[in-house]
């Protein structure tokens, strides 16, 4: 087991390095760190050259890469050319905000999705099963932006007018009310409701399908019949023998999805003005904010790789057949 984890972790290191080379090459090929200041007529040629030199851009590309990598690992992520502030805090905030939104949605979705999936499987072909299957396909086919806008209109406008309220039933933008001081938990939760709903509809739809399929496999398995033939009570049969094996694939899928979350939830964040990684990336791209784009991409890639590793490890923990291969 320990050996398996060590081996998998070691493999991740070259993967990370190769990914960092690709990220560096791609960003370099598509954006120039001096383009933004060069287009500013008030910046002198000397200043541009000094800037170029400071960034090490007059050196050959491999050396530039190594310099950048060294700086990146030491946490020197550069400054934004738009705000003039260090990149670190912006990325950290974006990541944190995205994670609040994403993790909340995942928690809600896993509970709902697993519950619905298991119940559908146990009552296969029941009314509930057909209902949940239909809803899942609906949930997966609703376009995110459309659904988000509908929720905004309904909760921000229609219901508010209907009840003749002064403020919207649910806030439709931002993470907290303007002018709020300190952390008002109720206010934060109210701001989470609509974006979490939008995201959860998708994830519940997907995860309930995974769970149902996994559970059906297990329910029809020979070892479940064995468990019953042993005279185990139904609770033990379900909890010990069915659920654990049925949920193993979902656990890794969820771990991978959480890693991918670092890339932000571009559509949802944009519509709900949620200051997360997605919004940060869009604005950095628009402004040609080289340092932000480069750091952003590297962080996201690292997240994806690390969470893939976590998914592998979780799978091995849950399924002994993997560890001994």
């Amino acid at each position: 087991m320990g050996q398996y984890i060590a081996r998998r972790a070691l493999v991740s290191i070259p993967v990370l390095l190769i990914a960092s080379i690709s990220v560096f090459a791609i960003v370099k090929a598509t954006a120039s760190p001096v383009a933004a200041i060069r287009s500013n007529p008030r910046v002198s040629q000397a200043a541009i050259e000094k800037y170029t030199h400071d960034l090490g851009l007059d050196k050959p590309p491999p050396e530039q890469y190594l310099t950048w990598l060294g700086n990146f690992i030491r946490g020197k992520w550069g400054t934004s050319i738009v705000t003039g502030r260090p990149v670190g805090p912006d990325i950290r905030d974006g990541l944190f905000n995205t994670m609040i939104l994403g993790i909340t949605s995942f928690l809600v979705s896993i509970v709902l999705g697993v519950g619905v999936g298991i119940f559908s499987a146990v009552r296969q072909y029941s009314f509930f099963d057909y209902l949940s299957t239909g809803s899942a396909f609906l949930g997966l086919s609703i376009p995110v932006f459309w659904f988000a806008l509908i929720l905004q209109i309904v909760f921000g406008l229609y219901l508010t007018n209907w009840f003749h309220l002064a403020t919207p039933v649910l806030p439709t933008a931002g993470m907290f009310s303007p002018g709020a001081t300190g952390i008002d938990l109720i206010d934060r939760i109210r701001h989470l409701i609509l974006p979490v709903t939008v995201l959860s509809v998708q994830i519940v739809a997907l995860y309930s399908r995974y769970t149902r399929a996994g559970m059906l496999d297990v329910l029809h398995s020979d070892y479940l019949r064995t468990a019953r033939a042993k005279g185990l009570n139904e609770r033990t049969v379900m909890m010990r023998h069915a659920m654990r094996n049925a949920l193993t694939p979902l656990v890794s899928v969820a771990a991978i999805d959480v890693g991918a979350l670092a890339g932000g939830l571009i559509v949802t964040e944009t519509i709900f003005s949620w200051p997360g990684m997605g919004v940060l990336f869009i604005s950095a791209m628009e402004n040609g904010d080289y340092s932000v784009v480069l750091t952003w991409m590297m962080i996201v890639v690292a997240f994806v790789i690390v969470f893939n590793l976590i998914a592998d490890i979780l799978y091995a923990v849950l399924d002994p057949r993997i560890r001994y291969d």
């Binding site: 020979d222 070892y223 019949r225 064995t226 010990r240 654990r244 002994p320």
Partner: peptide, 16 residues
């Protein structure tokens, strides 16, 4: 009354 089955690999729980 106890029972054993044809395919012992699939009849045993792989994760226990």
């Amino acid at each position: 009354i106890a029972m054993i089955f044809q395919d012992p690999l699939s009849a045993l729980n792989p994760t226990i």
